[in-house]
Amino acid sequence: MKIGYAVPAGLLAASLLFAGCAGKDNSNNDGNNGNSGNNSGNNAAAQAGSGTESVAKAGGETNADFTTAIDEYRKYVIEQCDAFVKQTEGFTDAVKAGKLDEAKTLYAPARMHYERIEPIAEALGDLDPNIDARENDVDAADWRGFHKIEQALWQNNTTEGMTDVADRLLKDAQLLRAKVETAGIDANLLVTGAVELLNEVSSSKVTGEEERYSHTDLYDFVANVEGAQKIYELLKPELAKKDPALEQTIGERFTALTNELAPFKSGEGYVSYETLKPEEVRRLSQNLDALAEPLSNMGTILGV
């Protein structure tokens, strides 16, 4: 989570407003039948300046049906939320019981479920700052959630004074779970959300700022990427129809990034971000940008 979510969150919020009352019955609430998306922006430069490229098939309809993708995604969000609540409970129990090591072990894996669906949480009012704000993201008096406990566990090496914070965190997690049930999800949110997940990585995980005490940034990194990949998988059939080259490029770059991340696996989890060399961080960042660029053109399936 970071402060700079104002615009995308606003977008998402707008789509929530738009689609919220429709509930699950939002079979055709995506793009408005404009011109069909014509090319992948990824290779659009190839057509630059020549003036000979086939411009958008004017008037082409975009009657893509995203019902299945949206239903599947809601299922995924709920699954992740269920796991998130359950594992957060394990974590907060450990904190409250003063089990420092156990709490440290449970911290990052619990957060991964949240990081996979972060754009949804960000669209749901104050939940994201309450759960995921870092120090200085919010006024000191309002600071709560995971990172406050993270600071206690790793920097102060204690669980002391964290009982209330732990209780509120669990309540916030449960509230999130309750709210996602009815959250409006439309194709636009999927497309925007996938890019947003990678932007999260780009702006805070890559720099090691997200988990500044625990250095478990790679867990979040992987989870954000997995969340984006899930959306891509769900939109893949439609994308393959619209722009097979783009669909293939995105797939290849997910694979490339996953391969880059593989060496940093350690047991069930990931190595401390502190152990990464500067050039390794840069490679991860470059592979992420290489993926996010074509991914940002998935909007082509929404029509224009």
Partner: peptide, 23 residues
């Protein structure tokens, strides 16, 4: 090459510069 031809002539790169759903 295509981009350079556009850049050096003050022309916009690419064709998707006015599509709301795309960067």
């Amino acid at each position: 090459t295509a981009a350079a031809a556009a850049l050096t002539s003050g022309t916009m790169i690419g064709t998707a510069n006015d599509k709301p759903n795309l960067p």
